[in-house]
């Protein structure tokens, strides 16, 4: 069996290794991705996003458990930030997911942002494809908790769950300002804390005020209170995700919109990445280093626009 075949057959080691190569942008990974692509499209992808510490990992752990009770297999991608100072990272989301470590029906991968902004990593979409091809029924993606601009997930997931906690008045404001639009389901976690109901009310008002368009599309964002630590509200979250999935099934136009966004996002990303890499490689082969070009610009021997123009004329002839 070649590597793609091993992955389609569910081989954990092969999958883990390919994910690493994708993350590290090893060129041969691309060829394996090509082979895997025809096997994708079966999994349902659920994104969990929200500020640091709101309970995303704990929720993912609990909801994964629920899917396992249904006999579904689960792939988890959990993103944590890379330190901008050292390039290193501590990836700690697994701490909350220990009960799944010995379950062969759950595959968990921790990822570092490596300088990528937007809540995911550069290659999260490729990795989703790998877990999909591997046969995972549900793919749960935990974004890095960066605050307000983790909106990328909405272009990768079928269902986006936005997690908040009570008593963060600013939090609700932030949601209003930036990321309200991407939530299909809103979770108020840590409902054991004071102010949970109030947060729910605030969210509901925002949804009713601001999301006319979405409601017209037939999906009114759902709000659910949870206490992830104890599993309270998890059954409701589970059924809300189910409802969203069924809504997409029953509304081909909406489903198409999601699939379109995903496909477009993946294509544009791959095109950008590979074009950039190909051109830099070719320059390198001709003995022109990136550093040398940058130096020219710094020294005002050339301007970036003319350089790019020249290079493209040369390389894309």
């Amino acid at each position: 069996m070649n590597i793609a075949e091993q992955i389609v057959a569910g081989d954990v080691r092969a999958t883990a290794r390919l994910l690493r190569d994708i993350d590290d942008q090893i060129p041969s990974a691309r060829d394996i991705l090509k082979e895997l692509y025809p096997h994708t499209g079966k999994a349902h992808v659920v994104g969990f996003t929200g500020s640091p510490g709101v309970g995303k990992s704990t929720l993912v752990d609990q909801i994964a458990l629920r899917y396992r009770q249904d006999g579904l297999t689960v792939g988890i991608l959990a993103v944590d930030p890379t330190s901008p100072f050292t390039g290193g990272a501590i990836l700690g989301d697994r701490i909350r997911m220990q009960r799944h470590f010995l379950d062969s029906g759950v595959f968990i991968r921790s990822l570092a942002t490596r300088g990528h902004f937007g809540g995911l990593t550069r290659s999260t979409n490729d990795m989703i494809n790998v877990l999909d091809a591997m046969g995972k029924d549900m793919i749960l993606v935990e974004t890095v908790g960066v605050g307000q601009d983790e909106v990328e997930i909405a272009n990768s997931a079928h269902t986006t769950v936005l997690v908040t906690v009570p008593g963060m008045g600013d939090e609700v404001q932030a949601i209003k300002a930036g990321i309200m639009e991407i939530g299909n389901i809103f979770v108020v976690n840590k409902a054991d804390r004071e102010g949970s109901r109030k947060t729910v009310r605030e969210l509901r008002t925002l949804i009713e005020l601001g999301l006319r368009r979405r409601v017209e599309n037939g999906w009114e964002p759902l709000i659910v209170e949870t206490e992830a630590l104890k599993g309270r509200g998890l059954e409701e979250l589970y059924s809300d995700i189910q409802k969203h999935r069924e809504y997409l099934r029953a509304n081909p136009q909406q489903l198409n919109e999601v699939l379109w966004k995903r496909a477009r996002n993946q294509f544009v990303e791959a095109l950008r990445d590979q074009t950039l890499r190909t051109i830099l490689d070719r320059l390198n082969n001709r003995g022109v280093s990136l550093d040398a070009l940058i130096k020219m610009i710094m020294n005002k021997e050339a301007d970036p626009y003319s350089l790019v123009h020249e290079i493209l004329n040369e390389e894309l002839r």
């Binding site: 330190s83 990272a89 501590i90 220990q98």
Partner: peptide, 29 residues
């Protein structure tokens, strides 16, 4: 310290059995 040295560290907390440790090491490559 490993993070500060520029490494990516998967951290899983206490009470790990050898089985859990090896399974994590393989999934995380």
């Amino acid at each position: 310290a490993f993070r500060d040295a520029g490494f990516e560290v998967i951290y899983t907390g206490c009470h790990q059995t050898p089985e859990q440790i090896v399974s994590t090491a393989i999934q995380e490559d």
